[in-house]
Amino acid sequence: MKGSAIVTAALPWLVIVLILAVIEAIYRTGHLPIFLPSPSMLWGSFIESPTLWPANMGPTLWKAATGFGIAAGLSLAGAGLGAVVLAAYAPIYNLGATLQSIPIIATTPLLALWLGTGAETQITIAVLVSQFPMLNGAMQGFRAADSRQREMMHCLAASPLQTLRYLILPAALPFIFAGFKIAAPAAVLGVITAEWAGAERGVGAVMLNALFAYDPPKVWLSVIAACVLAGGGYGVWALVERLVVVWDRPTELRQ
């Protein structure tokens, strides 16, 4: 049985290697269109300027992380306020939903006019696109403790703070993590989109420059860099969730 588990784990990688080998073979026979670089061209482009990637992924990462952090703080505070002051619940939720539904492709140039093309604009966009999944998750989460559990805490004469600590917060965690896992890649993609409006550094800047220079390998490498950052953002929170929420896996299918 152990052998089959290894095969299951290795299979996706084998498929990727196979696809890359096929593309390389097509390129060698001269049948690959010019806009599709071969794996070897990508590798060549990468080792031509290896420092280019960390130098540009770094700024994108810290801007996305900063935006994510601000959005997480605002969302948790907003959801907490909505849970305590019931009259504030609907306005806060609606504000988050409204901000979420404004297309960032429309807000980015406006923010660039207002704030310039520095980090402020990109961080603001990251906040705007990542806040709602977290707000939505936290708001659902703070209501996740059921009435029987609340009654049980009441019977124990628990203070509001104890009820928060022993019941409300742990019950909310799976929902909060579900929001974080959606918000983290969104923050990365928000920053990259904002970088298109003008930025000196960042994955989005490299992408745009490579596009204007008609450099397909570099465009593809910047796409891969974007995927690595976005996937990494998801992966970090999925891992933290796995370590923290050991009692419940609501967002994963049981195997």
Partner: peptide
């Protein structure tokens, strides 16, 4: 009626 234990 239900155990109402905290699952975590």
């Amino acid at each position: 009626q239900q155990p109402t234990l905290l699952p975590w």
